[in-house]
Write a protein that binds this DNA or RNA. Structure first.
Length: 831
RNA sequence: GCCGAAGUGGCGGAACAGGCAGACGCGCACGACUCAAAAUCGUGAGGGGAAACCCGUGUGGGUUCGAUUCCCACCUUCGGCACCA
């Protein structure tokens, strides 16, 4: 046994012992409170990078801390193993994606093992395993039966590089690029499977109040769902056909001076006059050619044409012209708007360009009712004018009053619209769970029977360099008998979005590959119920913010559907969420091979050990902030561990110099040590609760510096010294699990440190013996008083005024006022 | 344009129910050990000034005995959304 700190020796040793003792096996125990700690599962790229370490090791420290505080902790890991990189590798190397994927998983298991995390490996689940995706398909089938899954022919986003359609959530940025590969997406008209997430839009917004998630994630989801409350109002065409519009400002109905339809609006044909037909057709064609990116450009000049048709405004029976323009989208609301140029910036720009009337119906905050030079859209000041029965109504009440009036007169009704679109889950890729659907010439769309699941991926797929899905060309896969009529039929060759596989993985972990090899039924449960009843829902989730409007929205939706299917009895899958920041290269930029600023965690672990890497990552700064990797700063954590080693190992040895009797330390020394210890326990306990690892480590360093300094004094001949060493190790255990267990055993303990209870801090023992009180004159520090804590205000004031420095500064002036904050300061105010 | 987060030493950061700005660490300087270096240990430092002191938490105002912390207006950076009616 070496007497020097040698992580390369002790870390593999402890990892092996922990595994042999099944130290992290999670077993239901009704006697103890449970804690389901979950971290976002990795994609098995084959290489665990620093980002994974930054995501996982603090998450592990948090889980370990809970465990030491009496919780029965489940901290599982698995692999989100379907996806395009495996398919691309298959095209490149000619190997099956499964081969590539499982080889990578093997490699990553070893890398994950080096972290020294308390992974509950027996709960591992791999989403590309047929026994896993059997259940993904089962969920699809359940969703289909429940009317949540449906098929639709519509314009969809398509990534030309990934060769597949994408969900709206996977299209990012103002250039509308693919979230995975960065290529700008194009629009295609395709028949695709979707999930009715919009049915849950309201609940997805409302229930954000019930979960402890970072505010910014809640805001992003709220904005993404984009609920707007207003009214639908029935206008009519001159010919009498109803023309329904959605507006958030029904109070401006009297200011509508024209209407605008989306070019694709079904009514356009009917209302277009003979004279305008050619212009309308030309505009429609032009709009159709343009994709949404071009149409959506905000600064684009407004375009549009008059249809020749007119509509009747139901509130005043006015006849107003109907235009078409591409700034109105068919996909939102009813695809038609009433234009109120006076109170909407877009309508204002349009009216100005085409010389249409701008009629003011809301006064300015000062009562101004004259012509406008720009749209006035404030909703908190002004009152209605030129609005018939509503003149004089303050805007604050206007929307609700007009909406009620519309309903009473059957002209419209209150309505809500969402920006959220249904979740497109079809992917034209091979390496995903096949959508379990069959198309039969006789029976139409036929779902694969539950007992026939899984629909297996072929293991002899042929990958084409064109990037097309091999399933389309795999005769054995594609052609089937119809489950209903037995006739020739065709399989769906699209696969499920991998986000669907990860939407329920926290449930899959409970009892991985549940009912493996058994036929499934409609009323099955995808996990062992008693296990789920104990662990669910997830208590603490950690992961990156990049999933704010993708995975984190989808898994909430999934859980709500599962609740409605009777699978779970709660509304939200994850009660608490923490988003870690991003670890950057030493140059402060995102790590990337092309930049050459990648830190390879394996190399750093070889050099310093996993404990140092863990501790350094947690020491950099607040976990949600991320930050640059500093190759020099990591030395500080390494030195800290070496100094802990020295303090603890030296204490094991005989410290009494020969011939000198052991001397008793003074009570002051002992109290000072005890105070430092309990201050540290209180501080570290508090910090660990909230993942403030950086300040927790700083406090541990302070304590160790203190112990290091006094280790050659008489305090070592005391019980408090030994309990300080013991508590230091206990507090280090979640962050530095290996060195903590090693030194713990060297102290003579026989069971693992990770089975011990977290030390209890005593505020009484942490209290300072004396406190420095600052003496200020006019807010500037001029002197200090050292007093016992809790000194009376009057005494502090008196003592301060006695100070020679104070009388000097006052130069004979009488204090006008003296502010005393006990234990803090005395501030003397003088003219 | 709208929404959100953040600006503190040479660097990462600490301290905000308003009360000694810069904990902890990196780097730096000096010293000890060494023939020397590395490692280790010790000491030191926000800037200016010989000192007394003065100035300092993005900028400018404000509230207060007192503001990194609260309020107002800007500037910069990052993230999200964007003709959503």
């Amino acid at each position: 046994m070496s007497n020097k700190y040698n992580p390369a020796e002790i870390e593999p040793k402890w990892q092996q012992i922990w595994a042999e003792q099944q130290l992290y096996k999670a077993v239901e125990d009704p006697e103890r409170p449970k804690w389901y700690a979950l971290t976002m599962l990795p994609y098995p790229s084959g290489d665990l990078h620093t980002g994974h370490w930054y995501a996982y090791t603090p998450s592990d420290a948090g889980a370990r801390f809970r465990r030491m505080n009496g919780y029965n902790v489940l901290f599982p890991i698995g692999f989100d193993a379907f996806g395009l990189p495996a398919e691309n590798a298959a095209i490149k190397h000619g190997a099956h994606p499964a081969q590539w994927t499982f080889a990578n998983i093997e490699q990553m298991r070893a890398q994950l093992g080096r972290m020294g995390a308390m992974w509950a490996w027996e709960h591992e689940a791999v989403s590309c395993d047929p026994e896993y995706y059997k259940w993904s398909q089962w969920f699809f089938r359940k969703f289909y039966d429940a009317g949540i899954a449906y098929r639709e022919y519509a314009p969809v986003d398509f990534c030309p590089t990934c060769n597949t359609t994408l969900a709206r959530e996977q299209v990012w940025g103002d250039d509308r690029h693919c979230e995975r590969c960065g290529t700008p997406v194009i629009k295609k008209n395709l028949e695709q499977w979707k999930f009715r997430i919009t049915r849950y839009a309201d609940e997805l917004v409302e229930m954000l109040d019930q979960i402890e998630w970072p505010e910014r994630v809640k805001v992003m989801q709220t904005n993404w769902i984009g609920r707007s409350i207003g009214a639908e109002v029935a206008f009519h065409t001159e010919q009498g056909e109803p023309l329904v519009i959605f507006t958030t400002r029904p109070d401006t109905l009297w200011g509508a001076t024209f209407m605008v339809l989306a070019p694709e609006h079904p009514l356009v044909n009917a209302i277009t006059s003979t004279e305008q037909r050619a212009a309308v057709e030309a505009y429609k064609e032009q709009a159709a050619r343009m994709d949404e990116i071009q149409r959506g450009a905000v600064d684009k000049e407004k375009t549009g044409v008059f249809t020749g048709g007119y509509a009747i405004n139901p509130v005043n029976n006015e006849r107003i012209p109907i235009w078409i323009a591409d700034y109105v989208m068919m996909g939102y609301g009813t695809g038609a708007i009433m234009a109120v140029p006076a109170h909407d910036a877009r309508d204002f720009a349009f009216a100005q360009k085409f010389g249409l009337e701008i009629r003011r119906v809301i006064t300015g905050p000062d009562g101004a009712a004259g012509p406008l030079t720009e749209a006035y859209d404030a909703k908190d000041a002004g009152e209605m004018v030129n609005s018939g029965p509503f003149d004089g109504t303050p805007v604050e009440d206007a929307v609700s009053k007009v909406t009620a009036w519309l309903e009473a007169n059957e002209l419209g009704r209150g309505a809500v619209n969402y920006r959220l679109r249904d979740w497109l889950i079809s992917r034209q890729r091979m390496w995903g769970a096949p959508i379990p659907m069959i198309y039969c010439a006789n029976c139409g769309v036929v779902p694969v029977p539950y007992e026939d699941l899984p629909v297996l991926l072929p293991d002899d797929a042929e990958f084409r360099p064109t990037g097309e899905s091999p399933l389309k060309y795999h005769e054995g896969f594609r052609w089937v008998k119809c489950p209903q009529c037995g006739g020739d039929a065709e399989r769906e060759t699209d696969t499920l979005d991998t986000f669907m596989c990860s939407s329920w993985y926290q449930y899959a972990y409970l009892s991985p590959y549940w009912k493996a090899g058994q036929p499934l039924k409609a009323d099955d449960m995808p996990w062992e119920k008693t296990v789920g009843d104990y662990w669910l829902p997830v208590d603490q989730y950690t992961g990156g913010i990049e999933h704010a409007t993708m995975h984190l929205l989808y898994t909430r939706f999934f859980t709500k559907v599962m609740r409605d299917l009777g699978l779970v009895d709660f509304d939200e899958p994850m009660l608490r969420l923490f988003n870690q920041g991003m670890i950057l290269g030493p140059d402060g930029e995102k790590m990337s091979k092309s930049r050459g600023n990648v830190i390879n965690p394996d190399e750093v672990v070889d050099r310093y050990g996993a404990d140092t890497v863990r501790g350094y990552l947690m020491f950099i700064g607040p976990w949600d902030q991320g930050g640059p990797w500093d190759p020099q700063a990591i030395e500080g954590v390494y030195r800290f561990l070496q100094r802990v080693w020295v303090v603890v190992v030296e204490a094991m040895q005989v410290v009494q110099p020969q011939g000198k009797p052991a001397r008793t330390p003074s009570p002051d020394q002992l109290r000072a040590l005890e105070r430092k210890l309990h201050q540290t326990i209180l501080k570290v306990t508090d910090d660990m609760q909230d993942f403030r690892f950086n300040t927790a480590i700083a406090a541990l360093m302070e304590l160790n510096n203190y112990l290091y300094k006094v280790r050659e004094t008489d305090v070592v001949n005391s019980a408090i010294w030994h309990s300080a060493l013991r508590d230091l190790l206990l507090m280090m255990a979640p962050i530095f699990p290996h060195i903590a267990d090693e030194l713990w055993h060297r102290q003579g303990n026989t069971s693992s440190i990770h089975l011990q209870r977290w030390p209890a801090g005593d505020p009484e023992k942490a209290r300072e013996a004396e406190i420095t009180v600052v003496v200020q004159i006019n807010g500037k520090v001029r002197d200090r008083l050292v007093v016992a804590p809790g000194a009376a205000k009057a005494d502090l004031e008196g003592a301060a005024l006695q100070l020679s420095s104070v009388t000097k500064w006052l130069e004979g002036r009488a204090p006008r006022r003296v502010i005393v904050v006990p234990d803090k300061l005395v501030n003397i105010v003088a003219d």
